[in-house]
Design a binder for these strands. Structure first.
Lengths: 109, 109
DNA sequence: AATGTGCATCGTATAATTCCGATGCATGGA
DNA sequence: TCCATGCATCGGAATTATACGATGCACATT
């Protein structure tokens, strides 16, 4: 993941509605959720939520698959992983001692 | 790190100038960099950069320490770690299989 | 005490984001 | 074929972010 992609991903997640939707999608991997279900839970208008979804999609964090009349939205775990690796590089490059506590905490899951 | 703090941190990093400054500060841990050095490299006005720095500080990602007439800025690695753990929880909660590749890639550093 | 340096903050102009209703398009069912 | 559903997209209004110059304050030097 390059700098621009990371910026897109960070901006996409830096909004309550989008962060919430993304988390819900991750929790519903790998089945995904329909756009309607996400809209309903968000409390926003369908059109408003649709633009939020487009931001997540443009950042590569969410991918949609057409299933009949519905769209199934799915979180792209690889993209999340890419973002985390990008952030990790910031603190790990040449200085592993900064990241070891992170690895220790991650190991618990 | 709770949801609101994560949103602040994500928004703080979701800007080219701030992401760049934060990365430079991480690379200069633990000595830090003076505000002036950061301003000079950013190519922006001192006042503009100062507001960016305030955003990072409000998000807890950067802490400043007064040293004479200068301010030494330092990246808060714990805050970065907190953000990464927050993101990791999204993909690891109850589903470790999603995170194992992440751990494998992080292990290299 | 007087001056210069380093930074925060205020005021303001411009750009971007966010939100909604309205509209349009494609699909599935009557 | 005709209608209803699910979603994207357009247009516009309100809010927020971004950038700058000007100003003010604190500290160090002279």
């Amino acid at each position: 993941m390059d700098n621009d992609s990371a910026l897109l991903a960070l901006a996409a997640l830096a909004h309550p509605t989008r962060l919430d939707a993304f988390r819900r999608l991750v929790q519903h991997e790998p089945e995904g959720l329909s756009t309607g279900q996400l809209v309903e839970q968000s409390g926003l208008t369908q059109s408003t939520f649709s633009t939020h979804l487009a931001v997540l999609a443009k950042a590569g964090l969410v991918q949609s698959e057409k299933r009949g009349r519905h769209f199934i939205q799915r979180a792209d775990i690889d993209a999340l992983r890419g973002l985390m690796l990008f952030l990790a590089k910031d603190c790990c490059q040449g200085r592993a001692e900064l990241c070891e506590p992170l690895l220790a905490e991650l190991a618990c899951c």
